[in-house]
Design a binder for these strands. Structure first.
Lengths: 227, 227, 227, 227
DNA sequence: AATGAATGAGAATTCATTCAT
DNA sequence: TATGAATGAATTCTCATTCAT
């Protein structure tokens, strides 16, 4: 029996079968899904969301169109939805963000901005696509809003426990503030990266955003107190 | 001269009846173009930019698809481009805007915001379409940038002649500042109206923008001076 | 001016334009629609209803797929529906059918059978398609039932005016009887022509149907009276 | 003998444990086939024959698509064919049917009708599918005809031995008569159940069919004698 | 034996654009 | 000028079938 035959024989043994089958299937499946994501976003950068068709994705990923519809039965809409769900945890569960001491809100905001900014840079295609997708998929917009609320509820609770200033703001209000800042920052980063540059350098943008959010936080807290 | 040549000759004559016909046609032409614009934007609000086809516009406007391609040989792209050109003067040539005295910069910014805000509200469909169009039509984006520059150059010149504070800022820098504020305001209004509301009421938005622009003007001027 | 130029000139004259345009457009339109019908039914005989696609029809008719969807926006479903509507009058408005004197009911039924039989033979493809279509298009089935009712209401009124025997049967009952006979005859002709032959010759079939309907009429009238 | 050959050899041995495994597999096999049948017909009632795909059946039956193609290598076509073959004996080998004495032909026909009627009701999905299948599978139609002939040959022989009246009709002729009645009854039951109701109640239908078959038997015998 | 991932031909449908009238 | 019939490439999505595991 040659070595190869031995390997083949071994691969039929039961203790191996299960492990390999699981690995193989799950690896292949995730590989295909990643291929679809990668090529989808690659094409969006090249041609835009609406000119990227499921057939283009299949051809670009060198898989069959049927495979795309196996994993994403509603085509592009499902690619967006599932990517949205798959990346749920990536943005806001960064523990470092919440190690904020007294009087360090400015640093907290700066970190927050950098996270959003890097997310935009790294996932430019996704962000372009997401803006397009929520126009025609109201469920996705709803899910996005709900996730924002949940994430910032979580963040607010953590921060109020650690920081005196945050603690003075009612939780509900703090969540709304964070959602506002999130929208504010995203609107400007998106505009800067995908519509028209606001500054010559990205550093100038993040510096500006840092001051802008501090200003906005003060402005909104002041307005709040007047009411 | 053959009979046909005679007919051709006649059709070029400036007899009264022919002039009237021409006038009538030219009035009809503008009517048709307006019909196309109106129904295009109506449909964009209903179905979105990408799901609005030239055939739909024709059916909605009760004109033939051929007529659309007569006036707009490249279809939707040309509708956007020509509407952009047709409305060139409407936004920034508002004389009232420039009657700004000393210490009245805040009022100037408030007026500026209101003009942009009302423009967004009234031309929501156009603004949605414009964002979509510049993604795939780089010429349109370029033209938009050039127009912004020209308009604000004009505005800067007028304002520097009338106002001491503006006069202290170099023209080139003032133009850049205005373009920045324009982009800032538009990014946020667009986000508020077409992506996700930033405030519960529109008044809160314009109040915030008013303070935001004042802050930004100070911030940028300060940063500028440091350099 | 050559003769051809003269013809061309003439063809631009107003009195001709209207006639020609009307003729031309309507002729072409009906030509295309007839092409679609003809090739649709030709293919149904060759491959069956479900294996006949709109693309096949277009290829077979040597027209573009767009033309089919211009006239029949919902594809095959609309071809069936519109053909159904176009042929509304053909079956029952045969005046000869109603020239039925006293004691000639047998002859009337014979004529009725022959009309249905010839309709099946001549429109075999349509009848096959119709059976398939009403399985997935409940509206078509409903329209079919309504038309049957209206047609036989009309027939019943005519016949009750002319024939003593029919006059003894209440109108409502007579309509039901006709619809029953219609279904009976059609079920058997369809089975004979498209599922499995009931008789060796078609003559035997029509003879049998003739006796069967006479029998059924007596049977149902008798049952009716007992109730 | 290598290790592998030994394994192969072992797998053919008739040790008890292996016999049990085989039995278990064969029981499983029939279970799988029944699952396929059940879910196929369930889906046909829900969506129709043509919209029921092999993939749907697999999903509905919670087995893999591969299993369906293992037992039915040509998919739906084979499911129909094999179901047709599996149910071969069920319809006509009902011994009660042939306990027909003198002058009881009417009762015999009534029983015959009830059997066919109940078969249609209970196997509505199969009957719908069968009609669709024989349109595109001429072999199935041929097999159906052959089975009808064989079944009624068998029935004719039994009945001629027991009943004087049947005995007067030549066997060949009797077979043809039965096939005719079978087609007649089926055509009308199918029309009533799946196209358009002939009567308000099913009882009325079976009563009518009972009289109709008696009439038809007399009619055909009479016609026969004339020839 | 059983699984189910993968394929890709093909079906329905849309849409920008052309062109004869 | 104006019409709208006609085109056909492109898009979304389905389905029978194969094959590696």
């Amino acid at each position: 029996m040659s070595f190869c035959s031995f390997i083949n024989f071994m691969s039929n043994c039961s203790f191996n079968i299960i492990i390999m089958t699981e690995k193989k299937f799950s690896r292949n499946k995730q590989e295909k899904i990643d291929l679809i994501y990668d090529n989808f976003f690659k094409l969006i950068l090249e041609k835009g969301y609406h000119k990227t068709s499921t057939n283009h994705i299949a051809k670009s990923a060198k898989i069959s169109i049927g495979t795309i519809y196996k994993y994403f039965p509603k085509g592009k809409q499902d690619i967006m939805r599932k990517y949205f769900e798959d990346t749920m945890e990536n943005i806001f569960n960064i523990s470092g963000l919440y190690n904020v001491g007294e009087n360090k809100i400015r640093d907290f905001l700066k970190d927050f901005i950098l996270i959003l900014y890097n997310n935009h840079k790294e996932k430019k295609a996704y962000n372009i696509a997401f803006r397009s997708a929520i126009q025609s998929d109201k469920m996705l917009l709803k899910a996005h809003k709900e996730r924002l609320f949940d994430s910032f509820k979580n963040a607010a609770q953590k921060l109020r426990g650690k920081n005196e200033i945050f603690n003075q703001i009612p939780e509900e209000r703090l969540i709304k503030l964070f959602i506002f800042l999130y929208n504010l920052i995203n609107a400007l980063i998106y505009h800067h990266l995908s519509v028209m540059r606001l500054f010559d350098t990205d550093m100038e943008l993040t510096d500006y955003l840092s001051n802008l959010t501090t200003f906005s936080l003060q402005y909104l807290t002041r307005v709040d107190n007047k009411k």
